[in-house]
Simulated scan of single mutants.
Amino acid sequence: MTALHHPDHARHKLGRRWGLPRWRLVSMVCMSAALQTSPPVLAQTPPPLRVLLPQSLSAPFILWRDNTPAEGLDLDLVRAVAEHLHSRAELQPMPRARVESALEQGEADLACNIVPSPRYETSLRWSAPLFDLNLMLVGHVSAAPVDALGQLASGTVLGTLQGHPYPPLEALFGDGRLKRDDALSEDRLLRKLALNRHPYGLLSRQVLSWHAGSESMSSLDQWRLPVGSQAYRCAVSPRSRIEPRLVLEALEQLQQRGRIEQLLTRHTKPALAVVVSTQSSVRRINRQQLSELYTGQRQQLEASTVTAPLMSAGPERLQFLQGVLQLSAGQYRSSWAAQQFGGRRSPPLELRDAESTKSHLQRNANAIGYLPLSLVDASLRVVYMP
């Protein structure tokens, strides 16, 4: 390389032209090279997903410890949504009555497990139904069991949740045939029922199953009356800091990938009901009586009538054995092996599926069996649920 074209010579000429010392010129050239080779600026991290948690909810949806949300299905769900969005969930407990207005005003981004109030059905962005909440009428042990809402006396008071709409019963509340007694939370509603502050209450099957065996359930009768289903949905603020479309798409993706079904399996019990015909004289039964009936230790639930238990195939069989009888399939077979010897007693009648069981129950008032709750209609009476 000739002296004329040497880089140092070129920089020396530029320095003389601009009136800069050589060290300043070298510094500028190095800085320019560094800027040209800098890595691209990374995309900005999404803001936290602000989630409102209605303080009216209880386990299995939200388990509170010292008034702080500790665990539950709802918490796992919103954290999964935040993770899908590469964000994190920022949890904000709030009274149920304020949740929808707070979302509308942009105080938070998301709330789940709320039934839309008419006023907010269009102002908020709602997810598609994620699963069903089975609404049940339950009663204190001193209250008369009923097979239909029409059997309740006019003006009967039902325990309800403050700020919670009940679409299947709104007409009955509206004309005064039924009256609401609002509680601030599901836990308080259960306590009021246990104290017989009102004879009946409305709670989801999922909540009742989670509390089964607890002190708050000891004064409640075993029968249940299904009064309809409410869709579990999430609401997104139109002023969400994360684009509402992305939040709704995250919920849809979680459902399509089976993540929500996994959460249901983890946090809730199967929707299984022990039922009889509405023509049966059996109004209620406890787990101990069921166990004795299905293992041959008892033949009657009432003094004058033999009760015929039924077993059916399908996934409900294992759910019933494990969740109600608390036996494995092998233990159940063993319990009948000795009794069948010599023809002393016969095990429960075996039917091929749930539909066959339902048909048999409808035709035989002395039979008792188990069904998925989805198959229970007005011809059947729920006498026990795990």
Rank of each mutant, 00 (worst) to 15 (best):
S277E: 14
R224M: 14
P238I: 12
R233Y: 07
L246E: 15
L172P: 02
S214T: 09
P238T: 14
S214V: 09
L152W: 07
E261I: 06
R224T: 09
S209Y: 12
A212N: 07
S277W: 08
R191G: 07
L264M: 15
M136L: 15
S237Y: 02
Q262G: 14
V141Q: 15
G155L: 05
L225F: 05
P165A: 02
D147E: 08
A148P: 05
L225W: 01
G150A: 10
Y232K: 05
V146A: 03
Y232P: 01
T265D: 13
G258T: 08
R239P: 08
T160M: 11
R191N: 13
D175G: 04
K192L: 12
V247G: 08
T160H: 05
E215N: 06
Q255L: 05
Q206G: 07
S229N: 09
S229K: 09
L184P: 09
P199D: 05
V276S: 00
K192R: 15
S204Q: 04
S154A: 11
L189Y: 01
G176E: 10
V276Q: 00
S229H: 09
E186M: 09
S214F: 07
L264H: 11
H198C: 13
A212I: 08
L225T: 02
P199F: 03
V236M: 03
G176P: 12
P244S: 10
V227Q: 06
V207P: 00
L251P: 02
R259Q: 15
V247D: 07
P199I: 03
D175E: 15
S154Y: 11
D175Q: 11
V141S: 14
Q206F: 14
G174Q: 12
R239D: 12
H198N: 11
V247P: 04
S219Y: 03
V236Y: 00
Q151V: 09
D175C: 06
S218V: 07
R205C: 12
R188D: 09
L169H: 04
L195Q: 15
L264V: 11
V275W: 00
Y166I: 12
A235V: 01
V276E: 00
K269W: 07
L190V: 14
G258K: 11
S204E: 04
A271S: 10
H198Q: 15
E186R: 07
S240G: 09
V157N: 03
A250L: 02
V146H: 02
A231E: 06
R205Q: 14
S229E: 07
P165C: 03
T268K: 02
L169E: 03
E170Q: 13
Q222Y: 08
L184N: 09
L193T: 06
P270T: 04
I260F: 09
L248E: 01
R188N: 12
S277G: 12
V236S: 00
S142C: 02
R177E: 06
D147T: 12
